[in-house]
Amino acid sequence: MDWDNLRVFMTIAREGTLGAAARALGQTQPTMGRRLKSLEKTVGHVLFQRTQFGFVPTDEGQALLLRAERMEAEAIAAERELSGAEALLSGLLRVSCSDWFGNLLLTPVIAEFSQLYPGIVVELLTEPRLYSLPHREADCVMRILPFQDPDVVSRKLLQTEYAVYGVPDKWNSHAKGGAGCRLGSA
């Protein structure tokens, strides 16, 4: 079984369409289709049901996807283990967080980090999308919500306070626990 075809298969399963998978891998849509057909021929099963909403894994596709993801996780673990053996720190470090956290709190830390480790290029990802650590979409992620993946090591970084600010004349309802105060538009 060709690993590149398995990678294409997993990307189609994750993205849902050939076009989205092609964009994610930097390939063309026809290439995605050819690789998928080649894998289906190799395993002797149709791996996706084609629906109006995209590609949905068949039972055989779901079984293969579980095993392929385990293979991918092992390959990623081996790559990380081997890359950690280097004496000099260098390379790309992808950090994902919310835009406010990145702009207000993390930017000065990254500047100091860059001074200490000039061989490391930090890419700050501040999109609302949740990046995957096991799939190496990001190397470090800061989130408000806890992680669901059992293989992710997470630590509480900080606690931050929130408050609502406004014009004093418009917020007279604070004595009633905020009753009558509107947030946003109705």
Rank of each mutant, 00 (worst) to 15 (best):
A77V: 02
A21P: 10
S114R: 15
G44S: 05
Q115I: 14
K170Q: 09
C97R: 11
R155A: 01
V152E: 07
Q49D: 14
P118A: 03
L116C: 02
C97E: 03
T42V: 06
S98F: 13
F55V: 06
G166T: 03
A186Y: 00
L65A: 00
A75T: 04
E161N: 01
V167E: 15
S173I: 08
H174Q: 11
L105S: 01
T126P: 11
W100T: 08
G177E: 06
M1D: 00
T31V: 02
L47T: 05
K41V: 14
V153A: 15
L157K: 08
S114P: 14
L47D: 10
L92W: 06
G91P: 06
L92I: 10
L104C: 07
P150G: 03
V121N: 04
S83C: 04
L88M: 09
G19I: 06
G177Y: 06
V122R: 00
S132F: 05
R136H: 13
R50W: 00
A87L: 11
A22D: 06
N172C: 07
G33S: 10
A179C: 04
R155Y: 11
L6I: 07
C181N: 05
L92D: 10
E60V: 01
L82D: 09
D99I: 07
A75D: 00
T31F: 12
C181Q: 13
P108S: 14
P108N: 12
E69W: 08
R80C: 01
V167T: 12
T42H: 14
A87V: 13
V43M: 10
V164N: 04
E81I: 04
K156W: 05
R136M: 03
R70N: 00
R94K: 14
L130W: 12
L92P: 06
R50A: 09
P128D: 04
L39T: 01
G44C: 02
A20I: 10
A85G: 01
D151Q: 05
P57N: 09
P146Y: 05
A186N: 09
A175I: 07
V122M: 05
